[in-house]
Computed example of a mutant assay.
Amino acid sequence: MITSAYSFVALLLAVAGGLKLLEAKSRWKIFEFLPAIVMLYFVVMLMSTFGFWQQTEVINQAYAQLKQNILPAMIFLMLLNSDLRQIRKLGGKIILAFFAAAISIGIAFILAFILFQSALAEGAWKTLAALSGSWMGGTGNMAAIQMALDVPDASMGYTLLIDSIDYALWVMLLLALVPYAKRFAKWTGADTSQLDEVGQNLSSDSKQVSGDQTTSLLFLLAASLVVSVGTQQLAEWLPTSAFFTHTTWTVLIVTVLGVLAAMTPISKLFGAVELSNLMLYLIIGLIASRANFAELAAAPTYILMGMVILLLHGLMMLVFAKLFKFDLFTCGVASLANIGGVASAPILAAAYSRALIPIGVLMAMLGYIIGTGGGLVVGKVLSLIAA
């Protein structure tokens, strides 16, 4: 049994690295439905259930310090690729579709919570707020909301279950609908002539990272850690309430700083994606290390609730499509840019045309910007309903 902090962190990183390598080198179909980062959660949770480590004082201290300080640094790095000037080039209708998808997801969470509230555990609104952040942005936003709302790590198992199982079904459905794009456009009255032109312009105008790799990595790592310390200190000076805690302020401030930094030369340095991904894997491992399979007894209810959320979201997107004359590509990628993020939105875009891949990427980046704030808004509404 592991009792030292160093061995504990080393084991988490070893599991993360092994799973990521296995995903990259093997051809196992399971990784198409359960990416390495989701597998990491369940593998570490299984190890926690069987007592691979003891929650000693040094391990608990390392867990708290790493999670508290790495998360703001990760958010800052994650947002460096979210340049609002590039996102603006998507065009009004595509951006409108993205926000329509985000709003419909938020409304769907609220309606589903009202329907399922009696079957959910006390405080489940926090878990669903974290999931809504993920489905408006990505896993990083989910982790940010978990930190901001102090969601118990044990409850995050439900979030990952919904985020993997229901999300996989949604991706398959959207890919299956690709052949019906022309029929859908005829039904909505959409004009698809501008999509290829927008995609080609974004491809030729894409941002390239530059600089010596070691220098860039060292600078970005230092900058992100300094931002983490600085924002936490600044948050200590701001007024708080039951909802806006010091942690909530930290997450919001670092989000603003990341968006602003994305419009500076810092964003062109190599390594922001790589470093933020490393931090994300460590954070997911830390969260899972406090979870237990015995606490997932209500999993079927949460999975069913996730399906209801997606159904409500899909129905609302049909209404928006008819109202604003969206084509199927715009609706599908806007939805997946929210729910799946940068890992899957470009895949759906490529199913229509490779020229449209940059649109999928930029829409997913926009999700990183709004995911944390959107999830916190949903969480506030859910908390009022639960009161």
Rank of each mutant, 00 (worst) to 15 (best):
Y302F: 14
I309T: 13
I284L: 11
M305C: 13
L304E: 04
M317I: 14
L336P: 03
K322E: 06
G340D: 01
F326V: 10
F329R: 08
L296R: 04
L304C: 10
I347K: 06
A321G: 11
F326W: 15
A351P: 08
S335W: 06
M307H: 11
L296T: 02
S344Q: 06
A299G: 04
G341H: 07
L315P: 03
I309V: 15
M316A: 14
R290A: 05
H313A: 14
M317L: 15
Y352W: 13
M307F: 12
L286A: 02
L323G: 03
A345M: 11
S289P: 00
G306P: 04
A351W: 06
I347D: 07
A345D: 10
A297Q: 15
N292L: 13
A291M: 01
A294K: 03
L304V: 14
N338K: 13
V342C: 04
I339F: 04
A355R: 06
N292I: 12
M317T: 13
A297P: 09
I309E: 12
R354M: 08
R290P: 00
L296Q: 09
P346S: 13
M316H: 07
S344W: 02
S344I: 03
V319Y: 05
G332N: 14
G332Q: 11
D327I: 05
L312Q: 06
L336R: 02
D327N: 12
I309M: 15
A298S: 10
Y352Q: 10
P300S: 04
L296C: 09
Y352E: 06
I303Y: 03
F326H: 06
S289Q: 00
A298C: 04
A345E: 09
F324G: 00
E295F: 05
A321R: 07
V333E: 12
A291R: 01
I287C: 00
I287W: 00
G341K: 06
L304H: 07
I287S: 01
L310T: 14
A299V: 08
L286M: 01
R290F: 02
V333R: 08
V308P: 06
A288F: 01
I303A: 05
R354Q: 12
A351D: 03
V319R: 02
K322P: 05
A355G: 02
L310F: 15
S289V: 00
I287D: 00
L312E: 07
G306H: 09
R290M: 02
S335Y: 07
A297E: 14
A291W: 01
G314K: 02
P346G: 14
N292Y: 13
